[in-house]
Every structure is written in structure tokens, then in C-alpha cells.
Design a protein around this nucleic acid. Structure first.
Lengths: 195, 195
DNA sequence: CTGTTATCAGACACAATGTTCATTTTGGCG
DNA sequence: CGCCAAAATGAACATTGTGTCTGATAACAG
């Protein structure tokens, strides 16, 4: 036997990369739902049988791409949380906006109004973990019987909506600006009290 | 010719109702994505050719159901806005939670974690219109260059997330309670300021 | 009752999925 | 370089779901 070691054959690396790239470019072009496996293969110049050699379905391909992202985000959050605490809480937010700016196409495919359900749900899940972890120490703050999970869902929902809006609009504002606005609403409330 | 009047043949009414009902019950059972037209027809006891006599596709059936909802919600919002202003702003919120409680199955199918993309997007759209309209008069409040649309997306995103969470958990808390928590976060902020 | 209209079952063409197999490339390594 | 195991290929195939169309049957409205 040669080496099944943990080095990856260049051929599989190229094939997988081509397929991933083809997918996100197709999502941007025509939305996730209507893409067929044939189209992905043609766009990636890969035989259809080869596709099924690596992934079991279109969704599998997508999920595979998302697992990378999950690892990256969790690491980044760990760094942000320990590093500078000057940002107060919600340390994930700025890092996320910046990461999105640096990989615009990827994020537009994943969290843009195109892209469908799967990615959104996964990202939501990742963020929920991060926020939940951040809220953990502040257990005392949620005093009057407000379930912690409620707050988590509220924040993550708001963040995702804002992120999607920013991406769909072309991500023109700088990440710092969006982040500042998001934190402002999260800390001080979104609506001015009437009286 | 008889009458094409505006009265609807009983057979048509029964068929359509059966199909709509079958759809939401199937969504609850196995999620929207994997449902086939065949299954819908069998569940509704309707011939497949008859299905295509009324709707062009699965999505068409879903959209048709949503258009009812849209009309209802817009009317309800109009009533709530003019009626009692005692609730402050965000008058749509309580009405929505109550309506959801009264039609639990429907809402669990549309906004639960099952149900997929189409419904969520439509509901988000409806809510955006309502919030946008409510924010209109308070134009002055968003003083320092915070785009109004940003606030709209933030609020709607947070609301949808909270609604979904409540529904997926079985909608155990009373609407008033959820509503109060939502308003609290929206008005006073979700995170306690550090210092 | 009568004519209109909805429903039905079944057959059809079509598109996409996922599997299998024999054959050809190609990257890794001695 | 030259070997060979692993990867890629294209073609064929069975399967499932879609959407259309037919002629026959049943149910409604007047």
C-alpha cells in the first residue's frame, strides 16, 4: 500500500475545491433551489460519477462547505473573547462582519436572500452557540424570569437579519459601522420609549 | 352558459380546502421540503390531475394559502394601530402572537423550524411592511444617521426568531408574556451595559 | 330533469437522482 | 524513469417525481 496517511491526494483536493467553488458561484447566479447536480459538475468540469464519489448529494456538498466555516468561526470567537474585552459583550459580532467582508461571495451565497434554508439554519446554530456561551457568565443579569434562550434567539435573529440585509445591499458600509449600529440597538433598544 | 358569477362551486371549495389542510398537516409531519404532490393528493383524497387543475405546483399551493394570511394580518394591524394606542409602538406584536396561538398548527407549519424558506420569507415581508409603517411617523427618532431600514430588519429579524422559538417549543407561555418580553428587549435593549 | 363543470384514473414524455462498471488518467514513490 | 494504486471518466440503467392530456364518470346549479 502507498500512503493513506493524512495527506490528501492533489486530485481529490482539486476536484473538491472545484465543486465547492462551482456551487457558490451557481448559488449567486440562480439561487440554491433550482441548481442540479449536472450543472454543478459541468461548471466544475467534473464527471457526474466523480461527484457522487465525494458527496452523496447537493446538500451534502453544501454542508461540507459549512463545516469549514463552523470551525473557523468558533476559533475566531475564542480569540475575540479572550483577546480584547474592550468591546464589551457580543464580541462575535465585529469579527463576523469583517469575515463576511473578506469573503463576500461566500457569505452572499450562504446568508444572502438566495441560498435557501440549509445554510441559514446552520449559521444560526453556530451563532446561537457563541451567544449562549457569552451570556453564560451574566446569568444574574436576566433577573426577572426571562429565559436565557429567549434572549439568545432574539439577538441571533436580529443579527442574522441585519447581516443578510447588509450582504444583499452589496455590503457597502464598512463592518465597523454596521457593527456599531447593531450593538447600539442591542444595548440601548431599538425603539425610543414614548414617554 | 350558466353562471360564471362570483359564486364558487362547492366541489372547488372542498377540493381546495382539502389540499390546503393536507399540506399543513404534512408539513407538520415531515417538513416541507420532502413532500411530494402525490402525497398531498393522497392525504387530501384528491386526484393528481385535479391538483394541477387548481394549482401549478406545490409552491403555488403554499403561496395561495399565504395570500389569505397577508390580507388578515394587514387588516388586523390597521385595527390595532388605530384602536388602542396604549401599547406604545410595535402594535403588531401582541396581535401576531395571539393570532398564532389561535391557529397553532398553521403557524407551526409556516414559521416553525420545519416549513422551509418560502413561508418564512413571505411572513418576513409582511412584517417588514407593518414595522416600516409604524416607524414612519417617528422619523426624527433615528437621529444619528441610522438607516431606517436597518432598524426595520433588526426588529423583524428578532421578532421572527422569537416567534419561531416560541412555536417550536409548543407555545406554552401565554402570548401576553412573550409579547412583554419582546417589547422589553426592543425598548430597553437585550444586553445590560457593562459599566 | 338537464346541461355544465369538476373530478377521476390512467397513460405519457420528461427531467433529475443515484448506482454500477469497464476503461483511462494521473499523482505518488521507489 | 516506470510502476501501480487510487482517482476520474462516460455511458448505461433503474427509480422517482413532475406536469400534461385523454375520455369517462359523478356532482352541482338552475
Amino acid at each position: 500500500m502507498k500512503t493513506t496517511e493524512h495527506t490528501i491526494d492533489r486530485r481529490v483536493a482539486r476536484t473538491r475545491a472545484a465543486l465547492h467553488q462551482a456551487l457558490i458561484s451557481l448559488i449567486l447566479k440562480k439561487g440554491y433551489g433550482s441548481i442540479t447536480v449536472d450543472e454543478i459538475c459541468e461548471a466544475a468540469n467534473v464527471g457526474r460519477s466523480t461527484f457522487y464519489l465525494h458527496f452523496t448529494s447537493k446538500d451534502d456538498l453544501k454542508q461540507s462547505g459549512l463545516s469549514h466555516l463552523r470551525r473557523q468561526r468558533v476559533e475566531a470567537a475564542a480569540r475575540a473573547a479572550t483577546g480584547d474585552q474592550g468591546t464589551g459583550r457580543l464580541s462575535f459580532s465585529l469579527a463576523m462582519f469583517e469575515h463576511a467582508r473578506d469573503h463576500l461571495d461566500l457569505y452572499r451565497a450562504l446568508a444572502g436572500s438566495r441560498g435557501g434554508t440549509v445554510a441559514l439554519d446552520t449559521i444560526r446554530q453556530i451563532l446561537s452557540e457563541l451567544v449562549r456561551a457569552e451570556l453564560e457568565p451574566a446569568a444574574a443579569s436576566s433577573s426577572d424570569a426571562m429565559p436565557r434562550e429567549f434572549v439568545v434567539q432574539y439577538i441571533v435573529g436580529a443579527f442574522m437579519a441585519v447581516l443578510t440585509w447588509w450582504l444583499d445591499g452589496g455590503a457597502k458600509m464598512p463592518p465597523e459601522r454596521i457593527d456599531a449600529m447593531f450593538r447600539r440597538l442591542a444595548f440601548d433598544g431599538a425603539i425610543a420609549r414614548n414617554s
